[in-house]
Design a protein around this nucleic acid. Structure first.
Length: 84
DNA sequence: TAGTTGACCGGAA
DNA sequence: ATTCCGGCCAACT
């Protein structure tokens, strides 16, 4: 658990409803540009409910992965929130 | 302490 | 457009 981790969590938590951020953006804001992989690694194990991890997607715009119900559900959630 | 893994990214073939 | 390869950083074993 490093500062970077906490920062990432805080940033993701600040993502407003209907907004989506890429792992790269989050990593960049956290202070470690290019560490998108680290962000995913963190989320995988330290996925808090206070953090809207399902709002975080890949730089390509694709949904990416999800452990809480699968990427299918995540995609749906984004469609529900993002598209409105 | 060192090595492996992974919800990724970007460039090359 | 798809597939392959190296790099990046935190967490796990």
């Amino acid at each position: 658990m490093t500062e970077f981790t906490k920062k990432v969590l805080a940033i993701v938590r600040k993502i407003k409803k209907g907004k989506t951020m890429t792992y790269k953006q989050v990593a960049d804001m956290a202070g470690s540009p290019g560490s998108a992989r680290a962000v995913g690694s963190i989320m995988k194990k330290n996925y808090d409910l206070t953090v809207s991890c399902h709002r975080v997607i890949k730089s390509d715009g694709t949904v990416g992965d999800y452990n809480r119900g699968g990427s299918e559900m995540k995609k749906k959630l984004l469609e529900e929130e993002k598209i409105r």
